[in-house]
Nucleic acid binder design. Sequence first.
DNA 1: TTGTAAGCGTTATCAT
DNA 2: ATGATAACGCTTACAA
Lengths: 401, 401
Amino acid sequence: MRTDIIADTGTDTATSTHTGVPTINDVARVAGVGKTSVSRYLNGETDALSPALKGRIEAAIAALSYRPNQMARGLKRGRTRLIGILLADLQNPYSVAVTQGIEAACRQAGLMPMLCNTANEIDLQSRYLDLLRTYRAEGLIVNPVGLPDSALLQIGAGGMPLVLLDRTVDGVDCDSVGLDNERAARQMADHLVDNGFETLFFVSESFASVSSRREREAAFVAQAQLRGATPHTLVIDLADPASIAAVLETVGAATVPTRAGKRAAAARANPAARAPAPAARAPAWPRVALLAANGQTMLPIAIALGMRPLPGLGLATFDDPEWLRLAESGITSLRQPTFDIGVNAVQLLNARIDGLDAPARRRTFDAELIVRKSTLAKPARALTGVLPDNPDASLVPSSSS
Amino acid sequence: MRTDIIADTGTDTATSTHTGVPTINDVARVAGVGKTSVSRYLNGETDALSPALKGRIEAAIAALSYRPNQMARGLKRGRTRLIGILLADLQNPYSVAVTQGIEAACRQAGLMPMLCNTANEIDLQSRYLDLLRTYRAEGLIVNPVGLPDSALLQIGAGGMPLVLLDRTVDGVDCDSVGLDNERAARQMADHLVDNGFETLFFVSESFASVSSRREREAAFVAQAQLRGATPHTLVIDLADPASIAAVLETVGAATVPTRAGKRAAAARANPAARAPAPAARAPAWPRVALLAANGQTMLPIAIALGMRPLPGLGLATFDDPEWLRLAESGITSLRQPTFDIGVNAVQLLNARIDGLDAPARRRTFDAELIVRKSTLAKPARALTGVLPDNPDASLVPSSSS
DNA sequence: TTGTAAGCGTTATCAT
DNA sequence: ATGATAACGCTTACAA
């Protein structure tokens, strides 16, 4: 048995003057076995290998720190174990959270996820789609940009397994995972009405082309009406500070017990009079609530509001981003099981990769309603699971004083 | 010339009963040319091709919607065009921002970045390192987890081109990109001292094993002392609310004109006396400032402070995350040129991939100091580039009232 | 139990 | 200017 690693006279076909990465031939030569045996070892067919050979191969692999070439493997077997993950917005904590689940599931399934940030640009999405075809990705998990994309339509029609994430796309009939938006929106509407809110604002970025936003809006409005409340839908442009201000003004005008809102409302109702606000009134139970279509939408609103509850205004949002836990803003939230969503996306996809031929499946998940102070009818009433609020923003948080 | 696409009698070697993805053989057959010519066309060797052939090939490729198999290409040429991007924390907006630059530069260089979130876990980092070796990635850009990793050391020593991002690692001698931490920290210390701050707090997560934090702390402290100010370093654990509270309490105790801080300071200085605070004093110019080691550290602090400036406390941070622009918190920041950093990481790496053999290079970038209200000596003094602040957090932002 | 040889889709070397 | 043919590193019949 030969032990020299840099040997130049291969017992095999090759000429092997070595400069580069070790191949299976090198391992075979060093171990003094045929490459077939090495291949078998690599593929776990250990039962058909004598312990002696197995040991020699193991040693050789370690000595060379050999790693099988996945490209060559993929070429031969026709499966690269690569899957593409296209995310419309990696800035959104939701995307990263789902990614965590995807990566964990991929690890278990022996898949390699290729994360691609399409940054809400349709041409980036098609570019990555093309690139992934080129690398023979075995499947795709796509959180699509909210615009029609011929490349995506083609993929949906053509052979490559495809799972849509959070959003569906008209004309693409494939597996999908996401929140049960209808149920979550109804749940939230019920919670708000149950707690005495009568005027309900739904705030969202443009939702014409984003299915999840559409579903949330429709269900929230419907349920609110059903329960006798008055819903309004506000479209916000997060890139435009004026738009954010406008939304706050609109909501503020409807908020009765708030100074600014009251002034604004009064001024609006009767611009000439400038009636001073009546000093005392019945206890100011909140009656106006605002529900944001996702965490990214709520953030600028909460910031503009100083990250703390305002008397007379209930705040709620889809998603439960990290900063909500830091802020004692009393913002009620609908937490998505992002990790599970990611895991299930991979499961659905992997089944297709393994050859499953079935009609499109959709897996939806329930949101967890996390009630916080601003949407409770009576702040004084004790309620389990309610987080404490910070009445005055002194330097030292109330919890430590 | 044959035009049937599904034909089963190949003029070539293959048996070609077609079920799967079209290959270069299919294109050759449909176009009625040799595969060599197709390969030449694909590689842009158009000068050695008659226009006639070129046209036929073009048509065939379009008809089949053929895409060359990058795996096979990589196998033959030895270059996969794949590079691995390992990020210690994809939750950090900094990482995503740099990613944008990386992706743009990759597009231009014809590289395919594989984003991997190591989630601050050392074993995930080694796992991905291994996986990327397996896929024969041509190079690596790594924002390393702040812990020694034998796998990374090995890569650094071994052949694969490697560029370190933001952080360097002891014992790994390779190219790196990042902020000029020393210069930025000095710049900030100067700014604060120039504006009358005397007590300076540097707040950071554990920085023993993270080079960038170490550099920032050391330079900030040194420059503060040089300028006659009193620096303190506070280590914070962002996962622990009590730790955040403790930091705020410490800083608050040092903040003279603040009610809570004043009380605390007095009590601390003279526990027995309980001297009431002197009612009137000279105008309360800020004299205590807090600098966060990065945006992630500042976020919970700003939230606890209600996202608005506090009299007597200057706030500043490395990084300039999106939420800073939304908040009118007066937080001064050191904006990193994240896009450029990403682009340069790819440039450095690509040069190595193209065979450059040179000693390790380091490219540093200057931060842009963005001055906001809380760190100005006299709020009244007009200064260009200063953002307006929101004195009272009414529902309607001041800009629109 | 182990080895030989063919071939995955591409490019590179050689003919023509 | 164009095409046959041999690798690239691996898996997989098929032999031995």
